[in-house]
């Protein structure tokens, strides 16, 4: 009788553990994809570096920053948006090109080249950058961002993303 009771008990224990195990298996198999599903897109970085053509190098004036605009397609989720990228291109010698973002490093306003003063001027907080994008006056914490550039067949490219 006691033996039976004992058997009964250990059988119950086994069943309880087995039930728990099954629950755990199902839980894990569900949870792993579920977590990946929820946080997945948030973790995805934009990895697609690509060279974007700005235009012919002949348009760049020696010693005077030239504004180029190009449209970049941007996919967020299933929606593709078009974004305009504006770049100031500076060259001293016609061989080396420096591409500067026109976005102020302070709060993201658009800077404008004022040729009279030889400075980029940000209208938001009166910041000024020199021809190569270094801060002259105002609050910006760092120089204007630069893009990597390359020239192929007299066409100027900058590297976006990455």
């Amino acid at each position: 009788m006691e033996e039976k009771e004992k058997n009964q008990l250990s059988r119950r224990n086994f069943l309880a553990i087995a039930t728990g195990a099954i629950g755990a298996v199902i839980g894990v198999v569900m949870a792993v994809p579920a977590v990946a599903y929820v946080i997945g897109p948030a973790l995805q970085r934009r990895t697609d570096e690509n060279w974007v053509r700005l235009g012919s190098t002949s348009k760049v004036e020696l010693g005077n920053p030239t504004l180029f605009k190009t449209i970049v397609e941007n996919q967020t989720g299933w929606i593709v948006t078009e974004e305009e990228v504006s770049v100031y291109v500076v060259t001293e010698d016609g061989r080396e090109y420096i591409a500067l973002s026109n976005i102020c490093t302070h709060l993201g306003c658009r800077v404008r080249w004022i040729s009279d003063q030889g400075q980029y001027f940000c209208p938001c907080h009166n910041a000024a950058f020199d021809e190569l994008g270094l801060v002259v006056t105002g609050p910006p914490p760092r120089p204007l961002d630069r893009y990597e550039t390359k020239v192929e067949d007299d066409q100027l490219y900058i590297l976006l993303g990455g």
Partner: peptide, 17 residues
């Protein structure tokens, strides 16, 4: 439709869910 396609093909584990 696009969001369903997105779930199925882009989101990690989306096809599973």
């Amino acid at each position: 439709y696009d969001s369903v396609v997105f779930i199925t093909t882009q989101v990690p584990g989306g096809w599973f869910i």
